[in-house]
Computed example of a mutant assay.
Amino acid sequence: MKKVKLTGVKVVDVHAHPFKEKLEAQSPVGFLRNLSLSVIPEMFSDLSEVEKNQPYPGSNMWIQRLLRGMSQYLNCNEDIEAIVHARNEQSKDFSAYTQKLFKDVNLQGAIMDFGYPQPPIDREDFEELCDIKVWEISRIEPLMVELSEDYESFEEFISLYRKRLQEDLCKEHVVGLKTIIAYRSGLDVEEIDESAATKEYETFKKDTRSAVKRLRDYCFHIAMECCTEADKFMHIHTGIGDGEVVLPKASPSYLLDIFRQEKYKNTKVHLVHGGYPWMEEAAFIVSILPNVYMDISLQNPFTAHGVERIMSQVFELAPFDKVMYGSDAFTVPEMNWMGVKIFIENFERVLNSWVEKDYMDVEKAQYIGEMVLYRNFEKIYNIKL
């Protein structure tokens, strides 16, 4: 029986972060830390007493899947010392190693959030390092911090904030703005209250990571307005992230009333991470609002085998043409590489199950796979690879 085969299909990653060129050798513990979403340094500290066949303390299925995949790719034993040694040898020319990984999975382009890590990595340098096409989303929070350090009055701050966002959106390689308001005050965004925002500005100047909800809500609305004017995308972090996220207020369902407002009915919105673990809510939102889209990133690749379940649930409601591939890779190129591999192996299982159940023929299932991997990006962002 003919099956869906996505290996070799070109891929665009619609949400990832750049990584720094690392010329120094990695240690086993350091490499494990690079793979983890944990912000606790002690999560990986001592591997000296790990017994044969024992999973590394603090590791999960994502790390297990990546280590096994790397051992096969590098043709070495499946233990961290052997993997890191082989990796260090092959990555002495870091750019060549990165490009080889990306070509292995046909990763041809990516939308990058250069707001992490800080200070920002240069987009053109990163593009040259990886030999892929890179587009940028401009994160609003670093700009808020920068301007608060330079301007005493709220009026000056907010005027320059709007101007700078407009300037960023005029740049050809910038496809939109991004907010991580879910990490600071949550997604329960309220209407603009200039008086309350003004009062909170002094608090923000003293502590730029403070909640200051009314100030952040105000800045969120301005970013939405700027994206509307420029006809570019507002990227919004939804769902889990690292340990700082305001988890009780991270569901994309909090944003539905905002999206329904008349002034935002034509605003292009990209729900980053597809709201995981509230992906059903995200899928519902994109199914009812024509200008809202979602990606499957962070849950891919960091839930490993869970990606199969997640994709099945997402497509219970989400239209096929409103979901895009992503990774949220952020420290090493192996994340970007394994993100594609995990996504493809799981999506193939989902698509082939639809064929086996006679929901569609294999040709249509194949096309849907290509839509999520790159075709939807080209159509939604009006960019041809």
Rank of each mutant, 00 (worst) to 15 (best):
K3Y: 15
V4F: 02
G8R: 09
V14M: 05
A25V: 05
A25M: 08
P28S: 06
F31D: 11
F31M: 04
L35Y: 14
L37C: 10
E42P: 08
E49L: 15
Y56K: 00
M61I: 05
W62Y: 15
L67Y: 11
L67P: 00
M70H: 02
S71M: 00
Y73F: 11
L74I: 04
D79K: 02
I80G: 03
H85W: 13
N88P: 08
A96H: 09
L101F: 10
L107P: 09
Q108C: 12
P117W: 01
P120T: 12
L129V: 05
V145R: 09
S148R: 04
E149I: 05
D150Y: 12
Y151H: 06
E152P: 00
F154N: 00
F154G: 00
E156N: 15
S159D: 06
Y161C: 07
Y161S: 06
L165M: 13
L165G: 05
E172A: 14
E172Q: 13
K178Y: 04
T179S: 13
R184Y: 13
I192S: 05
T198W: 02
T203A: 07
K205A: 05
D207R: 12
R209M: 05
S210Y: 08
A211Q: 03
K213I: 02
K213N: 00
L215G: 02
L215I: 01
R216E: 15
D217A: 01
D217R: 00
Y218H: 15
H221K: 08
I222F: 04
E225N: 14
F233N: 14
H235S: 06
I240T: 13
L247M: 14
K249D: 07
K249I: 02
S253F: 11
S253H: 10
L255F: 03
L256I: 07
L256N: 12
I258H: 01
R260V: 10
E262C: 08
K263H: 01
N266A: 12
Y276Q: 04
W278F: 15
E280Q: 12
A282H: 04
F284A: 12
S287E: 09
V292T: 09
V292R: 02
Y293H: 13
D295M: 05
N300I: 08
G306H: 06
Q313L: 12
F320R: 08
D321F: 03
K322I: 05
K322T: 09
G326V: 06
T331Y: 15
T331H: 14
V332M: 10
W337I: 08
K341W: 07
I344C: 10
I344R: 10
N352G: 08
V355C: 04
D358H: 14
D358T: 14
E363L: 06
K364I: 12
V372H: 09
L373G: 04
N376A: 06
K384F: 11
K384W: 10
L385C: 03
L385F: 11
